[in-house]
């Protein structure tokens, strides 16, 4: 389980973030001792840091600058200031991504997943049972057969497979599609899912995408 450190002084947000991350199968730790933020973070050895710019004792950007001298953990900067300066400074100090409050929680999760994926280099293929899914080419191979997926189907299948232990909500799927410039509606999502099912059936996998009515989908 990946460990994410939440550096955020607003306790309501910190707690809600922790809840959000835990519900997505991450181990989320909240930083409490801002005075020794740098040491605390290093001691906790997280896989990713969510770093708010406006924190007590030290500015988030300075903290990032100091951290970068010691560790290379991916960092997503969070701010509520609507301006470009913070963004530019954050990137120059070594931030990997940047979000502005109020952020879309699903987008934040997608960004976190994307960062982890970037870190695991040989994640261009996902295996499931005896299927191998080449994400870049969009090809799903079974023992003797292979099928080619469309862009939408690749996005959907990838998100389902990457979260195969839990239900992926419709909103997550839709957000991921929109995040990849596929601005489709829910009917189109349903159509895409059923096409994906038909294609998987060709490979001999009947009904591996389960519908949870009103919630979302899950790979079984």
């Amino acid at each position: 389980m990946k460990k994410i450190m939440i550096v955020e002084d607003d306790s309501v947000i910190a707690n809600e973030l922790q809840l959000l991350l835990k519900s997505s199968d991450f181990d989320a730790v909240i930083l409490n001792d801002f005075e020794n933020a740098e040491n605390e973070i290093i001691k906790n050895n997280p896989d990713l840091i969510l770093l708010d710019i406006n924190i007590p004792f030290i500015n988030g950007e300075m903290l990032l600058k100091n951290l970068r001298k010691k560790i290379n953990t991916p960092v997503i900067m969070v701010t509520s200031r609507e301006n470009e300066v913070d963004e530019v400074v954050s990137y120059s100090y070594g931030a990997d991504d940047y979000v502005t409050k109020p952020y879309n929680p699903t987008i934040l999760l997608l960004k976190i997943n994307a960062l982890f994926k970037r870190c695991d280099q040989n994640k261009n293929t996902i295996s499931y049972k005896d299927l191998t899914f080449d994400i870049g080419k969009g090809i799903v191979k079974a023992s003797d057969k292979e099928i080619v997926l469309t862009k939408n189907e690749i996005i959907i299948f990838n998100l389902l497979l990457s979260n195969k232990d839990r239900i992926v909500t419709k909103d997550e799927l839709m957000t991921d599609l929109w995040n990849n410039d596929e601005y489709i509606n829910e009917n189109a999502l349903t159509v895409n899912i059923s096409r994906l099912r038909t294609k998987l059936l060709d490979l001999g996998y009947d009904n591996i995408i389960e519908t949870r009515k009103g919630i979302g989908y899950r790979i079984i």
Binding site: D10, I13, E16, K101, N104
Partner: peptide, 10 residues
């Protein structure tokens, strides 16, 4: 923006 963020997360 901070309470708004909290509301959205909640």
């Amino acid at each position: 923006k901070i309470p708004i963020s909290s509301m959205i997360l909640k």
